[in-house]
Design a protein around this nucleic acid. Sequence first.
DNA 1: CATCGATGATAAGTATTTGCTTCATCAGCT
DNA 2: AGCTGATGAAGCAAATACTTATCATCGATG
Lengths: 232, 232
Amino acid sequence: MKQILIIDDDEKLGELLTQYLARYEMQAHVAMTPSKGFEMIKKLKPDLLILDVMLPEKDGFEVCREIRAKSSIYGQLPILMLTAHAEVTDRIVGLELGADDYLPKPFEPRELVARIHNILRRSGDDATLREIKPINGIDVDTSRREVKLDEVVLDLTTMEYELLILFMQYPNKTFTRDELMNRLRGIDAELFSRAVDTLVSRLRHKLGDTSKTPRFIKTVWGRGYTFIGEQR
Amino acid sequence: MKQILIIDDDEKLGELLTQYLARYEMQAHVAMTPSKGFEMIKKLKPDLLILDVMLPEKDGFEVCREIRAKSSIYGQLPILMLTAHAEVTDRIVGLELGADDYLPKPFEPRELVARIHNILRRSGDDATLREIKPINGIDVDTSRREVKLDEVVLDLTTMEYELLILFMQYPNKTFTRDELMNRLRGIDAELFSRAVDTLVSRLRHKLGDTSKTPRFIKTVWGRGYTFIGEQR
DNA sequence: CATCGATGATAAGTATTTGCTTCATCAGCT
DNA sequence: AGCTGATGAAGCAAATACTTATCATCGATG
């Protein structure tokens, strides 16, 4: 699970974000001050840092600069900055500071998640960019976001694609609906809906798969679904 | 991918530049001293050299002069010089030294990228000058900056042209809007604007393409756009 | 300094995706 | 076989994403 450190003195925002990010398989931690932040970076070794510009002690620019300066300690920790308004753009993202992206407040939580994924992807750390081994006739080129089934290119929607990726990363693992719901970013359904079933059904359809004699996605009655790894 | 060699003793700047240039499909390498630099030029055969004026051992002017003097060894390696301040201009760019361009510190990263492209273009090595294979009825003559669709010359604006070039260099690759935004130099849009969509739309229009049954540019829903390479 | 073309912003109009409902079907059980 | 709860699939509707016309802005040009 991705660890996210938030340095922001707005307690409420921190909590909301923590809660929200949890839905997307990210564990957030909040540091209210820069000094606390530095401490936590060392302890937590987060995968990404969300940094508010307005902070006590020193501002976010300063913090960012410091982290970049001491890259020997902090490495290339990806940084997303939250700015009070839409100004300053290039200065932040650009070299001078070395942040990876910025987001003006107020922002949509979705937007934040999208950006986090973006950054993680750029730093080569995201699931959707990890190499996926061809299995059973399906070949995924994650850098092109292209899926081939028996050499034929498939046209998948975002959700379908992500579901497939998830399955292929863990062939033969049985996922419960709950699990799938949580692991698929952006899924936004009622607790007891059949959204997952629907999604699986649609993916199956595009894969030319049938639930009765599945080549790819097997139904595990009472539990969930399994992506079949190898023919045996 | 373009190889860029940076000779600069400022470690931090080097790292940040490396990171930043990576976004634009350029692989940067840093040499902290001139002697190390010469060594790496021979090994790497970079496409362009970024040279700081302030260096240990000998200054950037000296390095530049030496490279030009030994053109039999180093060829016409394009050189971009970084100067501490805005002075000295002509001396650097002029014949005396033979640098191709200069940029005073501090600079905007965008500006640097723009200049790199400029130099590479002049030295006939840039993407916009690289040969582009005719695809699907579109034939681009990069040296004349002329685009023919089914033997008819099209009148494209700068942005449209660059977008097309980018697409044609990576047929069948799906670009996200973010990616396009970053890769198209000169694009300067707000965070949530439809600037890219607009541009695509305009290019499509001039190509006589329709979004519904695209011959060239396919919309990848939820992701971005793809230039169709071959009919399948 | 007026004009024109290029380009970004905006918003109304479409299109597609996706969650939900419903109902037929199926697995597991007695 | 018959019952029960789980699953599959089709259709619908709301949410979300895309297209494009139009306007505003900016810079180049004369």
